[in-house]
Design a protein around this nucleic acid. Structure first.
Lengths: 115, 115
DNA sequence: CGGTTAATTAACAAATCGGTTTTATAAATG
DNA sequence: CATTTATAAAACCGATTTGTTAATTAACCG
């Protein structure tokens, strides 16, 4: 059992699953629709498993319509993951800015730190 | 060998590694500084391995200063990952908006779709 | 009903992951 | 030079991941 953020990132750490999400970001699709681009590379049960990973991460929801399972993307976990990343990326860049300011101050007047 | 985006997401899919990045977003730190909060839970080699994962993903860079390895966060892979996520999250929400507009149009005037 | 279509489940194997202990390296320090 | 400090590398192990094939479920169609 893993925390939600870890499950989200783990789900995204696979190009097949990301391609499936990309496809779903253009609109609802059935399992076989989603599988189609990958059936040269893997079997249907493998696709089902990938979808299960995405579902467990809350990134997609599966409906049912007769024998079809229309899937749709849920953006919420993506938003939470982005929030985490932006928070720290921004902090890291602020660090760099402070370093830049420090270096600039340190070399002020020496006129040889330009590039 | 995995693509860069997959390596980034995989690196982020672990709370220990995320905590290390969070620490680094506040500024440079040595391996032992980064290890300190986790040494009740795991050994130092385990920490070294986590840092290797982050380094391979390009999320941190390790310098050297005598026997210390000052690490610092590199925001660039985070930015690329965020770009990917935002692109699809936004597309997904646009889908929802279109669906909402459709439902609204469809029930216009019928006065029985209220909750 | 019997067959077809869509998708899932089960059982299995190889590869990867996340930890361990032990050993090694490399620089500082007495 | 011998010791200590900071870190990495090697070998190993159990758990998880990612794929397979074969069997199963469930709904529709003639």
């Amino acid at each position: 059992m893993r925390d939600p953020l870890s499950r989200t990132f783990a789900a995204l750490a696979d190009p097949t699953r990301r391609a499936m999400l990309a496809r779903l970001s253009e609109g609802e699709a059935n399992v076989s629709d989603l599988a189609e681009p990958f059936l040269k590379d893997m079997t249907l049960p493998a696709v089902t498993k990938h979808l299960k990973v995405l579902e467990n991460a809350g990134l997609i929801t599966k409906g049912r319509k007769a024998q079809w399972r229309p899937c749709q993307l849920n953006g919420e976990p993506l938003r939470e993951a982005v929030d985490w990343m932006e928070q720290h990326r921004i902090a890291a860049e602020a660090q760099l800015d402070r370093l830049g300011a420090y270096l600039k101050a340190k070399t002020k007047g020496t006129r040889h730190g330009r590039k």
